[in-house]
């Protein structure tokens, strides 16, 4: 029997004036599943994630998480969801530890000090825990936003290029951690990356977006075979070039 999805997006559409950023996108994420969201720049990945986080209101369609409608149960849903992106930051004048303490308060986490300590250890952040955020390298900053995302023990995690600025060793450690968390807590993850090998390694299923529409869906192997390509990178290049030509 199929598990009930933790996330269900139905006919999700977002228009900005005449421009259609996301066009009737429907997908599900099952408990403990890692769903890869792929597509060239401008395909609608970020807008989709922003709608799932309640930052952008869809023009049409619906989003349900844990069986609840995001438009009417925002608070309950977002309490169980978190995200990390290379494109966000955190207050620069606060130390790493202070930033995490603020997040812990924001989500009403009890035993804050212990939880912050645990996550700092887990992500190997002890050497820079007292550094102000403005002094962090981009790799350290990425780890901080990941720590912020893990700290609240979410049931769904949205990760927008989580390993983009990390060195291969730390990136490998993060991937391992994500797999462990998924194994241990049944964490579901929506994952975007421009690293195709990483997508193949991490994702149970992949959705390809092109000009706001889903153009392919399945496991990495299924997608590669369907388009008769050697690997996921070739499939990506095919869609990226088509999109560029169309625009």
């Amino acid at each position: 029997m199929m598990a009930i999805p933790v996330l269900k997006a139905s006919a999700l559409t977002k228009r900005f004036g005449d421009f259609v950023a996301v066009n009737g996108v429907s997908f599900e994420i099952r408990p403990g599943e890692i769903l890869g969201l792929l597509g060239p720049n401008g395909a609608g990945k970020t807008t989709t994630i922003q709608m799932l986080l309640g930052l952008v209101t869809p023009t049409a369609g619906s989003i349900h998480m844990f069986g609840l409608d995001l438009s009417t149960h925002r608070e309950e849903i977002l309490q169980q969801v978190n995200f990390s992106s290379t494109y966000i930051s955190m207050p620069q004048a606060l130390t790493v530890e202070e930033n995490l303490c603020v997040v812990a308060r924001l989500y009403g986490i009890s035993d804050r000090a212990r939880r912050v300590n645990d996550i700092i250890k887990k992500l190997d952040m002890e050497e820079f825990r007292s550094k102000t955020t403005r002094k962090l390298s981009s790799g350290q900053m990425t780890r901080l936003t990941l720590a912020k995302a893990f700290l609240t023990e979410p049931r769904i995690l949205f990760l927008d290029e989580p390993t983009a600025s990390l060195d291969p060793d730390i990136a490998e450690k993060i991937r391992l951690l994500l797999k462990e968390e998924r194994q241990a807590s049944g964490l579901s993850i929506l994952y975007t990356s421009h690293n195709m090998r990483e997508m193949e390694e991490m994702s149970d299923r992949i959705i390809f977006l092109q000009r706001g529409r889903i153009v392919a869906e399945g496991t990495a192997r299924e997608i590669i075979d369907r388009f008769g390509k050697a690997d996921l990178e070739e499939v990506f290049l095919k869609f990226a070039r088509e999109q560029r030509q169309a625009s």
Binding site: G54, L55, E75, L78, S89, M90, P91, A93, V103
Partner: peptide, 17 residues
């Protein structure tokens, strides 16, 4: 301060009302 720190997304994507 939130805007300068690019922290608005973190806040408005949290359960904060």
């Amino acid at each position: 301060e939130e805007l300068w720190a690019r922290n608005l997304m973190n806040l408005f994507a949290s359960p904060l009302k």
